[in-house]
Nucleic acid binder design. Structure first.
Length: 491
RNA sequence: GGCCCCUUGGUCAAGCGGUUAAGACACCGGCCUUUCACGCCGGUAACAGGGGUUCGAGUCCCCUAGGGGUCACCA
């Protein structure tokens, strides 16, 4: 059996897009499922737009997601080099082969000439197709002109009749009429191959068995097949995965918010969540399970369950998943994650990592994004500097607010054990002694301790805060009430 | 515009000729409860339209409409 070899071939002209990430993921899943290899290849022949930073960012993005590859620019392999910019001699060899066999020819038409042809076509209202003017040039003469240094591109001779059929694993058989294609350019005048040519040479030489890529490449595939045929090479299997669309069904772009893996990372999404979400965008397990560890997807993954229709991505579902993964994550890891923020670093100058982990353990069930964790942890490390406005109106402005807090103070002062159990028991006893509901004691207490109207269970909060800080904060709240009542009277 | 692909609730989607057309997110109720989340229970909501084929069509075929892709010396 021929071994399975797939590839992810981004062009390093920008960040790793979530569409690209999903393509990489599908390739990865396919390779892992069939025990094949994933090749990472950088398509950087566009010297004007490719940057080292982009390349770096893409590799980092993939690694962050946990997608690993078996061969690539950073790790080598038997089919390198894995940067197209280092393969010029290889492309030129096969370009020459096509020139020699007559399957391709030099074209000396200038950009202006071509622009004129296009303009004419538009005037006449017909589809533009290259006139094939240079097709009839004498070969010896053309070669002479090239040798003398005249700029030329190389075009493939495309048959004007017949059809080219793409046998696609996801879409089935798709036919394209050859008459609709013109003699397209396979090498630019600077000697570098165009995308369609380089991709064919590389996929063949790298022994790629399955080309799994985005649907935008489907229309290019017949051109590539023509090149395979001209070179007398066997075809790989093709599989074109549908696009990911923005919520308004248009192509995803910056105006739709975060679109790159890096941006999602900065917003506080976990790699497991993004991976899980992306896996389900276009692939389905056939079961009703939505939460998946990618490793559990590997044995199930195949192209039969990949959807043919475009998928609109839904940030809310991703966010929901992220909340799930945060609540399931180890608190140690989450603590390390938020330590990247300066605000959290400052906390640790007067506190311990152990305490941070305890706090994270308490709050992680309520967070949707990583920054939520920082926000929810803040009052454990910073003083309460103010009170939620609505909360203060509700819990600090009643006639008996002072008495209720006084009761809380008594409970806290008297409790020597200061455990979940002892505190709750004491507080509930106090409430019934005073003939009020426990909630009447709890709400002002929460506001006093946290400055907020919502928090984890208040006894858990209190225990983590410690007796001294609790007492201090209750007194602080009583002082605040005192002050406000005084102000009130003055008005 | 030509060519190509796609079309089940707002979104992701199951379904592969016979189902009361799953499930998840979101939304709306309710329960739980010290708040907020979580969780649990329940609800609203879909086969784009029209023709065929068939005893029977979301499932097969055709047309229309809509969406997307592609038509570069970008990838």
């Amino acid at each position: 059996m021929k071994s399975i070899r797939v590839r992810f071939a981004p062009s390093p002209t920008g960040a790793l897009h979530i569409g690209g990430a999903r393509t990489a993921l599908f390739n990865w899943l396919y390779a892992r499922h069939y025990g094949g290899n994933l090749v990472l290849r950088l398509e950087d022949t566009d010297t004007g737009r490719s940057t080292q930073d982009s390349a770096q960012g893409i590799l980092e993005g993939l690694s962050w997601l946990g997608i690993d590859w078996d061969e690539g620019p950073d790790k080598g392999g038997n089919y390198g080099p894995y940067r197209q910019s280092q393969r010029l001699d290889i492309y030129q060899k096969y370009l020459q082969e096509l020139i020699d066999s007559g399957a391709a020819y030099y074209c000396f038409c200038s950009t202006q000439d071509l622009a004129a042809e296009k303009a004419r076509a538009r005037e006449e209202g017909c589809e533009y197709r290259y006139s094939r003017r240079c097709d009839s040039l004498d070969r010896a003469e053309a070669l002479q002109r090239v040798k003398s240094g005249e700029a030329a591109v190389i075009r493939l001779r495309v048959p004007s009749t017949g059809t080219t059929r793409v046998d696609d694993l996801i879409r089935g058989e798709v036919e394209f009429a050859n008459s609709l294609m013109d003699d397209f350019i396979i090498a630019k005048s600077d000697g570098w191959p165009t995308y369609n040519f380089a991709v064919v040479v590389d996929d063949h030489l790298m022994a790629i068995s399955h080309v799994i890529r985005a649907e935008e490449h489907l229309s290019n595939t017949p051109r590539q097949i023509l090149i395979y045929q001209a070179l007398n090479w066997p075809l790989p299997q093709f599989a074109h995965v549908s696009m990911i669309l923005a919520p308004d069904r248009s192509k995803l772009s910056k105006r739709h918010g975060a679109t790159s893996v890096q941006e999602f990372r900065e917003l506080g999404y976990l790699p497991q969540a993004l991976l899980n979400y992306l896996a389900l965008l276009g692939w389905s397990s056939g079961t009703d399970q939505d939460l998946w560890d990618v490793n559990d997807i590997i044995p199930l993954f195949n192209l039969d369950h990949v959807s043919r229709s475009a998928a609109v991505y839904d940030l809310e579902k991703l966010t929901w998943m992220n909340g799930y993964y945060i609540s399931q994550a180890q608190s140690e890891l989450l603590a390390e994650e938020i330590m990247r923020a300066d605000r959290v670093k400052a906390w640790l100058s007067s506190s311990t990592m152990g305490h941070l982990i305890e706090v994270v353990e308490l709050i992680k069930g309520r967070a949707k994004l990583i920054p939520d964790l920082i926000d929810a942890a803040a009052y454990f490390f910073e003083p309460v500097s103010g009170y939620d406005e609505k909360g203060a109106k509700k819990h600090f402005a009643r006639e008996n607010s002072m008495e209720l807090l006084q009761a809380d103070l008594e409970v806290f002062s008297a409790d020597q054990d200061f455990t979940l159990q002892s505190l709750e028991t004491a507080l509930r006893n106090k409430a019934s002694a005073l003939n009020v509901k426990a909630a009447d004691l709890i709400h002002p207490l929460r506001l006093a301790l946290t400055g907020r109207t919502n928090s984890p269970g208040i006894f858990e909060v209190a225990v983590l805060l410690g007796r001294d800080r609790c007492i201090e904060r209750i007194k602080q709240a009583m002082g605040w009430i005192d002050q406000n009542q005084a102000n009130h009277r003055l008005q």
